[in-house]
Each structure stands twice: as C-alpha cells, then as structure tokens.
Design a protein around this nucleic acid. Sequence first.
DNA 1: CTAGGATGCGAGTGATCCCTCACGTTCGTC
DNA 2: GACGAACGTGAGGGATCACTCGCATCCTAG
Lengths: 214, 214
Amino acid sequence: MASTALGPHLRPRKEPRQRRAHETRARILDAARAVFEEHGYAHGTTNRIAEAAGLSVGSLYQYFPNKDAILVELVDVHIEAGTTAVLAALPAAPDGWDALPLAAIVGPVVGAMVALHADGRGLHRVLFEEAPRPPEQLARLRALERDLTTMLGARLASHPEVTAPDPDLAARLTIDAIESLVHRIATDATAPVADDVLAAEITRLVVAYLTAPG
Amino acid sequence: MASTALGPHLRPRKEPRQRRAHETRARILDAARAVFEEHGYAHGTTNRIAEAAGLSVGSLYQYFPNKDAILVELVDVHIEAGTTAVLAALPAAPDGWDALPLAAIVGPVVGAMVALHADGRGLHRVLFEEAPRPPEQLARLRALERDLTTMLGARLASHPEVTAPDPDLAARLTIDAIESLVHRIATDATAPVADDVLAAEITRLVVAYLTAPG
DNA sequence: CTAGGATGCGAGTGATCCCTCACGTTCGTC
DNA sequence: GACGAACGTGAGGGATCACTCGCATCCTAG
C-alpha cells in the first residue's frame, strides 16, 4: 500500500480498526473497479460506487477522502502488480543474459504482460488514459518506464543476437510495442485472439525486429 | 461533410446561409479542437468552446444540436483525412505490389501516419478513447479498420518477401503496431524522436517482422 | 452489561454543466 | 432606408455530481 507517503488529500480518513472495516474497504475498491470499467471516469460516480458496494456514500467517504483517492489506489495496485509480474517473468541468469537466446528473454515477459491485461481492458484505459492523475503518481510511472527502458537498452546493446543500430531507441519501441499490442488485441472482444497465440506472435515480432539483418 | 446521413440528433439546427455563418461554424470547430485537447471531453464544456470561439453558447447551439455532435464531426473529419492520406501514400502499382520491395510499400504508409499524428495527440486521444461516441460511428470505424486489415492481409499473403505464417494476424499486428507506436512516440513530449527517424525505425520494425526467417 | 468508540447511513448543499429562450444585432434585397 | 430573415446574445432552468453532517447502529473492552 502506498498510504504512508501520500499527502493529506489522498489519505483515508481513518485507519480501519475492525475486521468489518477492512472488508468494507475492499468492497469499495472492487466496486470502483467495476463501476469505472462500465461507466468511465466521469460517469463513475461515487454514489454508484457506493451502491455497487452495498454501502452509502457516507461510508465510502470514511475510507477515501475524495473520488480521486480511490482511483490513485487502483492505479498503484496495478503498477505494483505489473512490476512484480514482469520482474518475476525475467529468466534468472546470474552471468547476464548474453548467453540466453533472445526469445527466452522476450517470451516470458510478453507472456506476463498478456496475462496481466487479460481482463479489465476498459478499466485499464480509464485508469491510465482517461482519468486525471496527480503529477506525483505520473512521475513515478514515467520513472519506472524510463528505468525499464534504459535497463533493457543496456542489456540489448551487449546481446550477440541484437543488430539494432540504436539500442535505446530499439528498447523504447520494444516496450511500447509490447504494451500497445497487448492492450489493443488481448482485449478486443470483436475479434479475439487466444492469449498464447498472441503472446507468441508478439514475441516473434519483437525478436525479428531486434535481430533483423542490417 | 457527413451531415446528410446523420439522424436529427446530430444534424445542425440550420444550414448556414451567409458567409459569416460558415466562418462561425469553422471557428466553433477550431475552438472545440483546442478546448478538447486542453481540457479533455468532460471538462471541455460548451461554454468554454463558445468562449474560445469568441461566441456565446446560444450561437454554438445554432450550429450544433448538442455537445456530442461537435465531437462526432471532429472524428469524422479526422477519419476522412487519415483514410485519404494513407491511400495517397500507397505506391501506384497497377500489377500489384509483389514486384515492389516491402520497404517501398510500408515506408510511405508509416510516413503518412506519422505526419498525420504529428500534432494533436491529446485531441486524438480525447476523440478516439475518452469520449463516448455513437455506435453508428464506431461501427464505421471498425469496418474501415477491418477492410484495411483484410486488404493488407491478402496483399501480404502473396508478397514474395513475406514469411509470416498467418498473414491475417500479421496484418493486424502490423496495422496496430504502426498506429500504436505513432501515437505513443510521435507525440510524447518528454523524450521526443524526430519524425523521420521514428518513421524509419517503425518501418524497420514492420519489415523485419514480416520478413523474419523461420 | 454497558459505555464509548468505530462503523454505517442518506437527505441535503453547493457547484458545475448542458441546453433553452426571449430578445438584440447584422446582412441582403428592393 | 426599410423590412424580413439570418445571425448572435447570455441569464437562467433543470439535471447531475462530489462531498458533508447529524444521527443510528454495531462492536468490543472492562
């Protein structure tokens, strides 16, 4: 939870003391997920969230100081889950990745990303694109992205299979391509693609790009 | 203009008769672009649009029956511009594309897409992701995308350079990758990439993907 | 059992927004 | 210049939404 570092405008009114309160808090977050996904940010009203959680608005405001605080917490949870999932998917290689085939590195990461976004595309869009977010959280997200990109760029530069002339740019395209394609296709209900097929094809795309003959 | 096929809820109140009225209409659309880009859909109020256009709200509602009608028109204009730009960028080849190098086909299309989204990323996001759009328009957009994808899939299947095992899936990834990467990178102000560099790199990615061995 | 804190309630407040309407202003025509 | 139509005005109605506050109910320690 990120509540320790948050300003007073995003801190809950009271820390829950009884078990009942913890359950209520969780119910609010679950209801918020559903309501934001269905109605979007602007029409995802606090009254609707409270109703979906089987509560009154007043109770909701016992746990969250305002509407945005709910959203911020949902985003934080998603960021944390994504970071740990991707890091866990990276193959363990104490001597660096240069000895591993590229597909063995890219494949698991893509698989983790696909799994992460398998459900809740609408919610994800609302959280990350539609809703206003505090600059503090946005900066954290950008820093995370930048770290990931430079880390990947350095690794790619030394990998024997990689032929990209500008590894940093290649790292950026790679990460953006993975995320974008997962978003677009994994959750497009009109023409679904099986998760494993999609992951394999995105992996094929990335590996082909990084190892293309000069 | 798409006003001929629109229902009464999206038709302007009156067809403009005087030159002044045409200018007013154009001013409203320009102002709406700016206001939606800056404030998003929900906070892009009709009063703000009218003010930005140097008009009163009442005048705005002489030309557009409601807020959404303004948005629909902006989207239609963008769709039309995008379609014509991409079609114009395709190389003329009466005997089909099979004799052309893949890069000569992909390059111009990517270049056209980059140029098309060079400005107004924020507006584009609002128009296509944040704002609610009538199902009719959404269906038109999906149909256009599907046509483009199947057209490209058929062409790719017969092209000698292409090695992708599933041309339709490859066509889909190709189109989505181009659009996504253009959106993400061409208009990310925090770490800008020159338009020509970006277009070249995306082209490299697509060609590498489509011609990957194995 | 009971006191007092924790939790839950929901009508109401003020703010914002879309859109209307009754009325002025400008333009084209004779 | 005078008349009618086209065009422009902006205060305000009606609706929605975030959030509050006074009070009821529940839980738990002593």
